[in-house]
C-alpha cells in the first residue's frame, strides 16, 4: 500500500522527483520498488588485523590483535582467567575470514558478558534466574497425546530426571498439567546452594546453557559431564525432532537452529568448565 502510494506520487510529479517522501526513519528499512532488495543483511566489519596472539597480564590472559589489545564493548581490557579459554578465544578471532562474524564467536561473547556484566546482576540474582527454570523445566513438561511422543518423552526424559534426583538427592517429578510439576522448596534450595559453589564466571556460562536448553536438569547433566552436548541438545529439542520425523526436515530452519543451539550450548559448557577448573590444573602439575 505504502509502496504503491509512493509510486503514484512520483509518477505524477515528474518535474519534482525530489519531493518523493523519504522512507520513515527508524522503521523497517523500505527501499524504493525495483531498486535494492527490501531486506539486506547488516554489514560486517572487515578483519583489520593479521596476527592473533596471547599474552599474560596481571589480571589473567589477554588477546592481542597485531599490536593492539582486545577490548570489551564497554572498552575494558579483555582478560580471561584460563589459558585454554584465551587460546580458544584467539582461535575464534583467527578463524575470521575477510569480515568479523560476531555471531560465530560464542566464547568471545561469553567473556564479554562476564567482563562487562551488562545486565548488572549479582551472583544471587543469576542463581535465582537459573533455579527459576526448574519450575518450567523442559524435561518435566509432558504431553498426553500423540501416543508416540508420550512414549518418547517417557523413555528419553525419565532417565535424566532419575539421574538428577539421585545425583542431588532431591525430588523433581514430571507433570502433564499446564501448571507444570510441583517442585518442593527443598529441591530448589539444594540447587541454589549447589550453584552458589561456582564462581561468577562459571555461573554466567551455566546460566547461558540453561537459557539455551530451557532446562536446568539437562544443563546440570552437561556441567556434571553426565551427557555430551549433542545428547543434551537432542533431549532439549525432543518434540521438534519428533515432528521432523513425521513431517520432514527443512535444512534452512531445522538444521540451522540445531547447529546454532549446539554451538551455543557447547560454548557455554566449555566456558563454565574452563572457568571453574583450578583444581584440575593443580592435579596436572602433581602428575608431572
Amino acid at each position: 500500500m505504502w509502496r504503491s502510494c509512493q509510486r503514484l506520487f512520483c509518477a505524477r510529479s515528474p518535474q519534482a522527483p525530489r519531493l518523493c517522501p523519504a522512507p520513515p526513519v527508524g522503521g523497517p528499512s523500505l527501499s524504493l520498488p525495483g531498486t535494492a532488495r527490501t531486506y539486506t543483511p547488516p554489514t560486517e566489519r572487515k578483519r583489520f588485523y593479521q596476527n592473533v596472539s596471547i599474552s599474560q597480564g596481571e589480571g589473567g590472559f589477554e588477546i592481542n590483535l597485531d599490536h593492539r589489545k582486545l577490548k570489551t564493548p564497554q572498552a575494558k581490557l579483555f582478560t580471561v582467567p584460563s589459558e585454554a579459554l584465551a587460546i580458544a578465544v584467539a582461535t575464534e578471532w583467527d578463524s575470521q575470514q575477510d569480515t568479523i562474524k560476531s555471531y560465530t564467536m560464542h566464547l568471545t561473547t561469553l567473556c564479554n558478558t562476564a567482563l562487562d556484566n551488562p545486565s548488572q546482576r549479582n551472583k544471587d540474582q543469576i542463581i535465582r534466574a537459573a533455579v527459576k527454570f526448574l519450575e518450567t523445566d523442559t524435561v518435566c513438561y509432558r504431553v498426553e497425546e500423540p501416543a508416540g511422543l508420550v512414549e518418547l518423552q517417557k523413555n528419553e526424559w525419565d532417565p535424566m530426571i532419575e539421574w538428577a534426583e539421585k545425583r542431588y538427592n532431591v525430588e523433581i517429578g514430571s507433570s502433564t498439567s499446564i501448571m507444570g510439576p510441583n517442585i518442593p522448596a527443598r529441591t530448589k534450595d539444594t540447587f541454589t546452594s549447589h550453584l552458589a559453589s561456582y564462581n561468577m564466571w562459571a555461573l554466567q556460562g551455566i546460566e547461558y546453557v540453561i537459557t539455551q536448553l530451557k532446562s536446568l536438569i539437562l544443563s546440570m547433566g552437561l556441567i556434571d559431564r553426565h551427557i555430551p552436548v549433542e545428547k543434551a541438545v537432542l533431549l532439549s529439542r525432543l518434540e521438534e525432532e519428533f515432528q521432523i520425523q513425521h513431517w520432514g526436515n527443512v535444512e534452512w530452519a531445522h538444521d540451522y537452529d540445531l547447529y546454532e543451539l549446539r554451538a551455543r550450548t557447547a560454548a557455554g559448557t566449555l566456558f563454565a568448565h574452563l572457568c571453574s577448573e583450578s583444581s584440575t590444573v593443580k592435579h596436572k602439575l602433581l602428575q608431572d
Binding site: 531486506y39 543483511p41 560465530t104 555430551p228 552436548v229 535444512e251 534452512w252 540451522y256 547447529y259 557447547a266
Partner: peptide, 28 residues
C-alpha cells in the same frame, strides 16, 4: 569431555555458518 565439547563447538559453528551463508546472508 572438554575436547568433545570443543569439537562440537567448532563443528557446529562451521555447519551453522555454511547454512547461514547459503540461506540467510544474502538479503531478501
Amino acid at each position: 569431555f572438554q575436547a568433545a565439547t570443543y569439537l562440537c563447538l567448532l563443528r557446529s559453528v562451521r555447519q551453522h555458518l555454511a547454512l547461514h551463508q547459503e540461506y540467510h546472508a544474502k538479503g531478501e
